[in-house]
């Protein structure tokens, strides 16, 4: 069942994406997008079971905008999102207008140990 689970990885750091893909591919099917726009197109083309999303890409809070777009669309609102980002949560949230709403299921700070990442992904998928 798990190898049919589809994860979309949206991050602009190609080396990081390569490394994380290698970890996730041991269990799941992984697709990659290098920025928010590409990511949204890929979601529209094929609905993923989980999205792993970076925050700072082409601009400072692109990840948040992507997450909001997904949550505001009834077709994609229920797709779980894990934020995986280099900037700490407090600082990131301060840049946001609405601090009370984090549009994601989990917020992880880079770097994340492979075991930890697999565990977090499994937990989020289970609680779906």
């Amino acid at each position: 069942m798990e190898e049919h689970t589809n994860i979309l990885l949206i991050d602009d750091d190609d080396v990081f994406v390569e490394a994380v893909s290698a970890v996730l591919e041991s269990v799941y099917r992984v697709r990659r997008a290098a920025n928010g726009k590409e990511g949204l197109e890929m979601v529209a083309a094929q609905r993923p079971d989980l999205i792993i999303l970076d925050v700072m890409m082409d601009y400072l809070s692109e990840g948040f905008d992507v997450a909001r777009t997904l949550r505001n669309d009834t077709d994609t609102a229920t797709i779980p999102i894990i934020m995986l980002t280099g900037v700490d949560q407090v600082y990131n949230l301060r840049m946001e207008v609405d601090e009370s709403w984090v549009p994601c299921e989990r917020y992880l700070e880079k770097p994340v140990a492979p075991v930890e990442l697999l565990q977090q992904v499994a937990e989020v998928l289970e609680s779906r």
Binding site: D13, V15, F16, E18, A19, V20, A22, V23, S26, M56, G86, V87, Y91, K110, P111, V112, A113, P114, V115
Partner: peptide
């Protein structure tokens, strides 16, 4: 200082993850 630290941390995080993936046998 915060932005500088982030600019240093991002590549460090990538290096660490890449090396971990290699040393822990994923690749």
């Amino acid at each position: 200082m915060r932005i500088s630290a982030h600019q240093l941390r991002s590549p460090l995080a990538t290096i660490k993850t890449s090396l971990q993936v290699l040393t822990e046998g994923y690749v």
